Computed example of a mutant assay.
Amino acid sequence: MENKNSTIHVEVAYALPDRQRIVALEVPEGCTVREAALQSGLDKQFAGLDLATADLGVFGKSVGAPDSQPLKSGERVEIYRPLIADPKEVRKQRAAKVKARKEAQ
């Protein structure tokens, strides 16, 4: 006989600039971050999304080992898109613009 507590409720989220989706799932206890992402089926809704290799996180914190980290009930898995620009480089460019503006005054 199956125990009522053998499954947990989690969500899996993915977003593009113009479209997002959150999928609620009931998964077995011990389900990993990657397994939940794969079970979400979001790769079928978003062309080019490869859940087998995508960077994943839980509630905004990147998960270093998504294939082995188990989820807890109520957690939200987030699927991250590759960065278009290096955030450090963007900050440097922004700082250079501010400095140039100040020097021009």
Score class of each variant (00 low, 15 high):
L38W: 00
R21S: 12
D67R: 12
P87V: 02
E29H: 09
E89I: 14
Q20M: 12
R101T: 08
R91L: 13
L16A: 14
A95Y: 11
G60L: 04
L49Q: 00
R94P: 09
P70K: 01
A36Q: 06
A24N: 15
E11D: 12
G48A: 03
N5I: 07
P66F: 01
L16H: 08
F46S: 03
K99G: 06
E75P: 07
Q69S: 07
K97L: 15
A100G: 13
E78M: 03
E26C: 11
V98S: 07
T32D: 01
K61H: 09
F46Y: 10
G60P: 06
R21W: 08
L25D: 05
E78P: 10
V90P: 01
K61P: 06
K4D: 15
P28L: 02
A96C: 06
K4G: 14
M1P: 13
A47I: 08
V10C: 10
P87H: 02
V27C: 07
L16E: 15
Y80L: 05
Y14P: 06
Q93R: 15
K99H: 10
V23F: 05
E78Y: 06
E2C: 10
Q69I: 07
K44H: 14
A104T: 11
L49A: 01
T32Q: 00
D18M: 09
F46P: 06
G64M: 05
K99T: 11
K88I: 12
R81M: 05
R91F: 09
D18Y: 12
P17L: 03
C31L: 07
S68K: 13
Q45M: 10
D50W: 05
A36V: 05
N3R: 13
N5E: 14
S68D: 10
L38Q: 09
K88T: 12
R21E: 14
V23P: 07
G41H: 03
Q93N: 13
G41V: 09
L49G: 01
G30E: 04
P28Q: 01
C31D: 08
R76H: 04
E26M: 09
G64R: 14
E78F: 04
Y14L: 02
Y80F: 13
